[in-house]
């Protein structure tokens, strides 16, 4: 690793101030960032650790909306259970040690194309809360490893409307155990959402044809004959674009069946 200053602010205000310094970068759970630093693939001058900021931690359930602090670890979300599909998804991320350290804010901000949380956020119609504003998930995830976050802006929380029905089905990449494809479906007040992670070169996306079909008939059969085009899907040693496209169909059906 290149060396850097590590600061551990205890308030959000101090963190934002520290992030204003040149080449400063936020450090959340570090489960992706630390290995990246160890490979010398990043060279921040200052890392601002968010793990000591209590106001960024915790889960609140207010009137059918679950608000999760950005520095809340996956294990806490997995244990919560208020939004069962979300808790199950959190419990499928990485492994127990990763879940004790990795945070929802870090995952959402990183927007790894194979990460689970972006599917939950997009598939639930969540709102991403930053230190400056609130951004709808639909507008937040802008591409592989790209988000609407500005320089120095951090995810302070995520607001999930708890839907009537929801489920996540993940098909693991055999090595990394990230999602080769993961599908999150929900049926709530604002309709049906189908969000797909792991598959597309553009990162997490909504499968609108499936949403339309499911809106009138929320059952696996409604998806018969529907498929996503292989064009634009990720192709690598773990699966061709055609395979990923195929899995999107299979997993969406399974997720709908699971959501009931």
């Amino acid at each position: 690793m290149y060396d850097f200053e590590l600061t551990r602010p205890t308030s959000l205000a101090d963190a934002i101030k520290a992030l204003g310094e040149e080449d400063a970068q936020p450090l959340s759970g570090g489960q992706t960032l630390v290995p990246t630093l160890r490979q010398r693939l990043a060279m921040p001058s200052t890392l601002v650790s968010l793990t000591g900021i209590e106001e960024l931690k915790g889960i609140k359930n207010e009137g059918g909306t679950l608000t999760i602090g950005g520095a809340t670890c996956h294990a806490d979300v997995a244990r919560d259970g208020t939004y069962p599909a979300l808790s199950e998804l959190a419990g499928l991320i990485g492994d127990p040690h990763v879940r004790n350290r990795g945070t929802i804010g870090g995952s959402i901000a990183n927007n790894d194309p194979s990460a689970c949380y972006p599917a939950a956020a997009l598939g639930s119609g969540a709102t991403i809360v930053t230190n400056n504003r609130e951004v709808a998930a639909d507008d937040f995830f802008t591409g592989m490893f790209e988000t609407a976050l500005d320089e120095g802006e951090i995810v302070t929380g995520v607001k999930f409307p708890v839907p009537e029905k929801a489920a996540y089905v993940k098909f693991e990449q055999p090595a990394s155990r990230f999602a080769l494809v993961g599908v999150f479906v929900s049926k709530g007040a604002d309709g049906v959402r189908v969000a797909v992670t792991g598959a597309s070169e553009g990162g997490v996306f909504r499968w609108s044809e499936a949403e339309d079909a499911l809106s009138s008939n929320f059952s696996p059969d409604a998806l018969d004959g529907l498929s996503v085009p292989a064009d634009g899907m990720i192709g690598d040693m773990h699966g061709s674009p055609a395979y990923r496209a195929h899995l999107v169909g299979v997993l969406t059906k399974r997720a709908v069946a699971k959501a009931g």
């Binding site: 590590l6 450090l27 759970g29 570090g30 489960q31 630390v34 290995p35 160890r38 890392l47 650790s49 294990a75 127990p96 040690h97 990763v98 004790n100 350290r101």
Partner: peptide, 9 residues
């Protein structure tokens, strides 16, 4: 809590 000490500073 169990953690991978190679990912914690």
């Amino acid at each position: 809590a169990s953690m991978k000490s190679c990912t914690v500073f």
